[in-house]
């Protein structure tokens, strides 16, 4: 949860830099955002989801959906990288807007369905994962 909020803040920060039109700080903000999101996907896909799937079979289908949305967001992050490199303000605005909405509905689904599921099913292992998630 806290991590989702961190990504929200980073995205908003990138938008703020974009509005000021200062490209060097925009590049830095976008890089920070991209790195944080990719890292969060990695933790979910390599640690949280496999452990959840192991103890809770019914989670397989939602996990599948979440992973495909990760792939969607990775594609958008690539677009963002390219648009920032090209100093294309219009494209950056559109990509960040799209990414924002995609992330919001994705996180909402995780927070209301998957994380509570993980909470219940992985009560013990959950403590360990939570520690890993918050240690970043």
């Amino acid at each position: 949860m806290a991590l989702h909020h961190r990504c929200d803040h980073l995205l908003a920060a990138a938008e703020t830099q974009l509005q000021t039109g200062a490209w060097p700080s925009m590049v830095a903000a976008a890089e920070g955002l991209i790195a944080a999101m990719l890292e969060h996907f990695r933790v979910e896909e390599e640690q949280l989801f496999p452990q959840l799937a192991e103890v809770f079979q019914a989670a397989a289908s939602p996990i599948e959906v979440m992973c495909s949305e990760h792939a969607q967001m990775r594609a958008l992050l690539e677009d963002l990288g390219a648009a920032v490199e090209a100093h294309d303000q219009g494209a950056c605005t559109g990509i960040l807007e799209t990414l924002h909405f995609l992330v919001q509905q994705h996180n909402y689904k995780e927070e209301t369905v998957l994380y509570p599921m993980a909470d219940g099913a992985l009560r013990e292992a959950g403590v360990r994962i939570a520690a890993q998630l918050s240690a970043e």
Binding site: T93, G94, E97, T98
Partner: peptide
């Protein structure tokens, strides 16, 4: 369709258009 296929080769415009 791209989500189902897990391939994002076709890039099209974003929300703002």
């Amino acid at each position: 369709p791209q989500v189902v296929a897990r391939r994002f080769d076709v890039r099209f415009p974003h929300m703002q258009v």
